[in-house]
Amino acid sequence: MTLFNWISTGCWDIVQTDVPQGTQCLCDNPSGSAFYEEESSATYAHPIDLEAATNVNLQFWAKKSIDLYNHYVALCYRSGGESYWQTIYSFMGVGDWEHYDLDLSALAGQSIELSFSSRGIWGVNYATFWIDDIHLYTDNSYSEAQYLLSPPLRVLSSPNPFTRELAIAVQGFEKGPLQLDIYNIRGQKVCSKKTNPLTSPAFSLNWNVLDKAGREPAAGVYILKVSAPNRETTIRKILKLH
């Protein structure tokens, strides 16, 4: 199951609640009474490239209700190619929303995966854990924070099939420029557009069905690729020109 940019097993979900930022957060066992028959975890869906990074810093808010003996939630990482997870930080006890600021500079120089994992005795679990507003900062790799709890991009296009003009709308990105590229089925870029920095999480444009040289492309199948700032998510849509 994919939760925004997180892949979950067990009882993790996105919930609506009072949170430090927005209205939703990532939560383990939101019902407060779940039966675990397997590991319950939420793993960030993309490897995080820290090859050229320095002073790596992970910041987020968390709230916990973990008062069971021998139960805790672990923030873990693993390096590219490794099969086992190593614990960075463990969460236990009961507490309201608290801001965490973790120095991960020791992980610089490699590509890593991040995961929050529930640990304890399998069976009925009454512990609940909430996470919100997750950002990863480095000195040099990212001009802004890499936001790890972003909703997925949503791309709408019409009509499809299309002839002389295609309307494209993009929703769900943070402020900044968008990159839109259209390719033919041979992987050749037909046209591209990069917007100026945007302040609204929605954008629309009309493609007049001309390539970058101003010529009308041949009828066939085309691929629309949309990339948002500080996001590894890329959307591809199949477009039919006739």
Rank of each mutant, 00 (worst) to 15 (best):
T2W: 14
N5F: 02
W6S: 08
S8K: 15
T9H: 02
W12F: 12
D13W: 05
Q16V: 14
V19W: 12
Q21V: 14
L26S: 08
P30H: 04
A34D: 10
F35I: 07
F35W: 07
E38M: 11
E38D: 15
E38I: 08
S41F: 13
A45G: 03
H46V: 07
P47K: 14
A52S: 13
A52D: 14
V56G: 02
L58K: 05
L58M: 01
W61P: 09
A62W: 06
S65W: 08
I66S: 01
I66R: 02
L68R: 13
A74Y: 11
L75Y: 09
C76A: 11
C76R: 14
C76V: 07
Y77R: 04
S79N: 11
G80V: 10
Q86T: 08
I88T: 08
Y89G: 02
F91D: 03
G93N: 07
G93T: 05
G95P: 00
W97Y: 08
Y100I: 05
D101E: 09
L102D: 05
L102W: 05
D103T: 01
A108G: 05
I112C: 01
I112N: 03
S115H: 03
F116S: 00
S117T: 06
R119P: 00
I121R: 11
G123A: 11
N125Y: 06
T128G: 04
F129L: 04
W130T: 00
W130M: 04
I131M: 13
D133L: 03
I134Y: 14
I134K: 15
L136V: 07
L136A: 14
T138P: 06
T138C: 09
D139P: 01
D139I: 11
N140T: 14
N140A: 12
A145K: 06
A145D: 10
A145E: 11
A145V: 00
P151M: 02
P151S: 09
R154V: 14
S157V: 15
P159G: 06
R164M: 08
R164N: 14
L166D: 07
A167I: 06
I168Q: 08
A169W: 03
V170L: 10
V170P: 13
V170Y: 12
G172D: 01
E174N: 05
E174V: 04
K175H: 03
P177S: 12
L178G: 02
Q179Y: 10
Q179C: 13
D181Q: 15
D181S: 15
Y183A: 03
Y183N: 04
I185S: 13
R186D: 05
K189R: 11
V190E: 12
V190P: 09
C191V: 08
C191H: 03
S192F: 12
S192R: 07
T195A: 07
N196E: 15
N196D: 15
L198A: 10
S200V: 09
P201V: 10
S204V: 01
S204G: 13
N206E: 07
N208P: 00
V209C: 15
L210R: 15
L210V: 15
L210N: 08
D211T: 02
K212R: 13
A213K: 10
A213E: 10
G214V: 07
R215M: 13
A219K: 09
A219R: 07
G220W: 12
I223V: 05
I223Q: 00
L224P: 03
K225I: 02
P229R: 02
P229N: 00
R231H: 02
R231Q: 12
R231D: 08
T233K: 12
T234M: 08
H242I: 12
